[in-house]
């Protein structure tokens, strides 16, 4: 059972940061994961009084407060219009509406959980975290950083025009994903992110430039590129086994979902 000695509703970020420097302190997100563990927390720091639970859309970007519930992301018209509904698709399988009303984007991203649909989705976009001390950090860099005692304040999505798609394979409809896959087409180039490998989501590098100029390709070329990149990802993306699936099966899914996602962003329908 989770034990908490003190609970502090932070008056400002400075106080929260100060309190969080102690190793046994903990910033509260939505509590859905935290309360399952056996942790003993000296001070639980609540950011919910700081107005960080909103999604602000400007000309250039979306600024998403760390305390924004996943359900708010899922139903946000601006984000869904921008992502062509991929944002909603990435979230709607997570347990249930009540769960997503609790779980926060800050908790999901900061935790950098291997199974995270949320991290996969944001890595698919041109996104950043804004840390209280560390400032703005690209999501990809943040995803590979070690946990520290800084505080994640906002998640930023830059509105670079894109087409994107999100796919996940699950053993049951609301279970953890067995594999997640996001793809986006920005500035004519395609990008693929694979998560729940089962370790942390990662963008699949494209050293061979298979996807360079994907947006400009003919249907047939796209088909070939998607096929080729799926084969490449199959061999390049490190996957493992866990309770939900073997590494062998995940590798197969890398291929299948990568191809599906690329076909989707290539406007070739999302099947096949």
């Amino acid at each position: 059972m989770l034990k908490i000695r003190n609970y502090v509703k932070a008056a400002d970020l400075a106080e929260a940061y100060e309190l969080n420097q102690k190793k046994t302190a903990c910033v509260l997100g939505g509590m859905v994961w935290l309360k399952m563990g056996n942790r003993s927390v000296s001070t639980a720091i609540d950011l919910s009084g700081l107005g960080l639970d909103t999604i602000r859309e400007t000309e250039e970007e979306f600024v998403i407060g760390c305390m924004t519930p996943l359900r708010a992301l899922e139903t946000d018209e601006g984000l869904n219009a921008f992502t062509g509904g991929a944002m909603r698709e990435s979230l709607r399988h997570i347990v249930g509406v009540q769960f997503r009303n609790c779980a926060t984007v800050g908790g999901s991203i900061f935790g950098r959980y291997g199974f995270s649909d949320v991290l996969t989705m944001f890595l698919t976009l041109d996104s950043y975290v804004e840390m209280y001390r560390g400032g703005r950090i690209p999501m990809e860099e943040f995803a590979s950083m070690k946990r520290d005692r800084d505080i994640l304040v906002n998640v930023i999505v830059r509105k670079r025009p894109l087409v994107c798609a999100y796919f996940s394979q699950r053993n049951t409809a609301t279970d953890f994903p067995v594999l997640t896959c996001g793809a986006s087409l920005m500035d004519g180039n395609a990008r693929v992110v694979i998560g729940a490998r089962p370790s942390r989501a990662m963008a699949v590098q494209d050293p061979g430039g298979i996807l360079t100029g994907f947006g400009e390709m003919t249907g047939e070329q796209k088909e070939k590129a998607a096929e080729a990149f799926a084969e490449y990802a199959f061999s390049a993306v490190a996957v493992n086994g866990n309770m939900r699936a073997s590494g062998e099966y995940r590798a197969l899914l890398v291929k299948v979902l990568t191809k599906r996602a690329l076909r989707a962003v290539g406007g070739m329908g999302n099947e096949g």
Binding site: M36, N171, T172, A173, T174, D175, M243
Partner: peptide
């Protein structure tokens, strides 16, 4: 209901033991 090599139940919660939801 599966068991680990030392005989512990792996599906020891409703997070791991999935019963059908209405979407399944």
């Amino acid at each position: 209901v599966r068991y680990s090599a030392r005989g512990a139940v792996m599906e020891n919660s409703l997070m791991q033991y999935k019963i059908p939801s209405r979407l399944d």
